[in-house]
Amino acid sequence: MTADTQFFWDGVKKHRLLIQRCTACRTLRHPPRPMCPTCHALAWDTVEASGRGTVYSFVIPRHPPLPWFPEPYVVALVELDEGTRLVTNLVGIPHDAVTMGMKVRVRYEHFDDDLVLPMFTPEDAP
């Protein structure tokens, strides 16, 4: 974590999915970085994402198995409705039921030592 990315993880701890926004031209960007590539402004703030998006890509890593992951697990690239993409896990759905373009929404998963990760689940999941 650096000064450029701290806000994202602080937001996640409060169950807020924040996207960096250039205050000059309003372009959103992820992953966070210090300069706006569109207008080169250094000033930025954040907007809270709706937490809704679609599955742009997903895979099921099989080998090597990772001891701290159940098998199988789904790694997805989710495109948020706001337009930026992020890598995440899909949860609350069998791995063989996931489809490309599926609508998903954020769900916050808590782990030991204070770690909170934004993951995604089908839009219509309970």
Binding site: T2, T5, P31, S57, F58, V59, P61, F69
Partner: peptide
């Protein structure tokens, strides 16, 4: 490294996995 902090927590850890997630939309 910083860039990996966006991927490692989700089990996207190997060159094969990085490449596969990238290649899937092309296949689709």
């Amino acid at each position: 490294p910083l860039w990996l902090s966006w991927y490692a927590p989700y089990g996207l850890m190997t060159p094969a996995a990085w490449v596969a997630l990238y290649a899937r939309p092309y296949m689709e």
